[in-house]
């Protein structure tokens, strides 16, 4: 028979060991998940890395409650590592600040972020892994990016980005012909908009006494770009980004 004090001491040691083991498992599992997330990110990156530059043509549609704009042709230029320019094919362009110029390569450039796995979800009917990217640099304009990655194809289906300057915007990608390069056929940007108002005394509007349409009350803006063609890795002049 062991004395009572010795028995308590032995139990304490055992408990400590168990706790240590549990802690190690948690840390190990976390590290393993994190590695999984980084692995997934690296897969996406390697797919995107196939593209050194591209010129894409598409059609842009702006859907903002207080803007009545026609759809127009756009040309998008990209060059590694993070040069991106969207040009409207003639005419005036009204684009959400920051949002449209962010593309997937841009988000994953460099290693200044920590990838945190955040479980599984679905985008439409597609099962996806949710990964949060936290920038490690304090100067980064991006505060948090949440990626919804389809594991089977290593394609980013959706991304939510919160920035310091330009608020939060959501990007949804629909893939087609250029999925092997990780390039979408359609990108939908959604963002919050602020109010627009000018005094009637300044504009002297022709008053038709029509009630304000419901769409005018919608605060969420959308920009939809449907790409019709990509010219990949054929070289893009730096002059296009000025």
């Amino acid at each position: 028979m062991l004395p009572l004090r010795l028995c308590v001491k032995t139990n304490n040691t055992k408990m400590k060991k168990i706790l240590l083991l549990l802690l190690s498992i948690i840390i190990f599992q976390q590290a393993a998940f994190s590695q999984d997330a980084m692995g997934l990110i690296n897969k996406v990156k390697s797919k995107l890395d196939k593209v050194n530059d591209y010129v894409a043509e598409g059609r842009m549609k702006t859907d903002v409650s207080f803007i009545k704009a026609p759809a127009g042709k756009v040309k998008v230029f990209y060059k590694k590592p993070n040069k991106f320019k969207l040009k409207r094919d003639g005419g005036i362009s009204i684009l959400p600040k920051g949002g449209v110029s962010v593309n997937m390569s841009n988000l994953l450039t460099g290693k200044d972020f920590v990838a945190i796995p955040s479980g599984d979800s679905k985008v439409g009917n597609i099962p996806v892994k949710v990964v949060k990217l936290l920038p490690t640099s304090e100067n980064s304009d991006v505060v948090l990016t949440t990626l919804y990655i389809e594991e089977a194809t290593s394609l980013i289906r959706k991304a939510n980005t919160t920035t310091k300057e330009n608020g939060t915007y959501e990007m949804e990608m629909i893939y087609g012909k250029f999925a092997s390069f990780g390039l979408p056929d359609k990108v939908i940007f959604a963002f919050n908009t602020k109010d627009y108002k000018l005094p009637k005394g300044v504009t002297l509007d022709f008053d038709t006494n029509e009630p304000v349409a419901d769409r005018m009350k919608n605060k969420k803006g959308r920009v939809e770009i449907s790409y019709t063609n990509y010219i990949i890795n054929k070289g893009v002049s730096d002059a296009e980004f000025r």
């Binding site: 803007i67 009545k68 005419g91 005094p199 304000v212």
Partner: peptide
């Protein structure tokens, strides 16, 4: 760009 009191109208040239 026609800047009205409640919204903006963009018309192609």
């Amino acid at each position: 760009l026609n800047m009205k009191s409640g919204y903006i109208v963009q018309m192609k040239s």
